[in-house]
Design a protein around this nucleic acid. Structure first.
Lengths: 191, 191
DNA sequence: CTCCTATTAGTACCTAGTGCTAGTAGCGGG
DNA sequence: CCCGCTACTAGCACTAGGTACTAATAGGAG
């Protein structure tokens, strides 16, 4: 038996969300209705045409790429940064970041957020972590928003020490001291 | 004065690389030639049409999204383990684990491997990292195989200390001391 | 029986092209 | 001076994957 309009529209929405590169023609065949019906459905649900959907996805990538040039490969979103001084990043803990059994955030994600932020802070061509001292003071649950605050505490010719404190609400959940190695040649101008 | 064919084609290639969402019409106006000339240029340079370019970018994103989900559970492959005593895991460094600029492994992947191994060693329901002391003694390149060896060095009622040494060939690249917190209630069977 | 909803069919038009044929402008060689 | 070559331009038919619109039909509720 065929689906009702409501059922079909609901399924349609799901199908397009899962496989956005599908044409009206494909959909019509899949649901056993005419192309026009699919078009009416899309209109009612305000789903744009295939080309617009593809374009949106592509534009997203392009924006991401442009944005990710300087603040490259960061875990968590950097919301404020002053090079060689301080920075703040946000990391929302989702399903894939926790232990399945107890829904507690796996330590390496907190480390990754803090370490990424520390790397981003360094105003040099090359920045590598040389040493780190970590304290995981409180477990972080799924759904928590972790705010990491980093501050450069010491700096000499080749080494920069960064202190990162990560909080959920007002609670300190992680503290890390990162000794970062910098390359000698500095670029000076950066954005 | 106008550009020669060679100059135009070279600039065209650059322009499309920079702004892939540009139509032949736009390009024709930009270079002061006809649309047909642009089409001939694209053919000679085997540059696909706008829609194909957009589609390629979009497909890339879509694949990336799927791929980026599982930074999951155990990082690296555990090849030997004796609970509460010692363990070994292998981690092959690929493209997605390194900094784009210098192809050096990002620190959090080495941490993740070591920390995962430390967690796996603990024969308890709940194992959380409480503290860690890390030394990244040598940079790890793309393509390297990192072998992490973990050993339990100390154990009391609630805490277990695990020492992890990671090597590429015979070179120590990472050393970590993990203080792990265990839950009291033990299950015995685990994998 | 009539109104309403759901669906289908068909037309004109759009964009950003491909594929093809044909024409022109300028230049060098014989 | 015409011949041939390269570079460029123009036009037409056709394509996919649509939009926008009109019209027709089937089936049920009141």
């Amino acid at each position: 038996m065929k689906l009702t309009k409501k059922e079909r529209q609901h399924t349609l929405q799901q199908t397009i969300a899962d496989t956005p590169f599908v044409t009206d023609d494909d959909l019509a065949k899949r649901f056993g209705v005419s192309v026009q019906t699919i078009r009416l459905d899309r209109m009612e649900l305000s789903i744009p045409e295939l080309r617009e959907r593809i374009k949106t996805v592509a534009e997203q990538t392009f924006e991401d790429e442009v944005r990710s040039l300087p603040i490259d490969e960061v875990i968590g979103e950097i919301i404020d940064i002053e090079l060689d001084k301080s920075g703040i990043s946000i990391f929302d803990v989702r399903e894939e970041h926790v232990f399945q059994r107890n829904k507690i955030t796996r330590g390496h994600h907190l480390f990754a957020q803090a370490n990424s932020l520390a790397v981003a802070l360094i105003n040099d061509e090359l920045a590598l972590t040389a040493r780190a001292n970590l304290i995981f003071s409180n477990p972080v649950q799924m759904g928590d928003r972790v705010i990491a605050k980093a501050k450069v505490s010491h700096r000499d010719k080749h080494r920069t020490t960064v202190e990162v404190m990560s909080y959920v609400e007002k609670t300190l959940v992680f503290k890390g001291e990162f000794e970062m190695y910098r390359s000698t040649f500095q670029l000076g101008e950066e954005n």
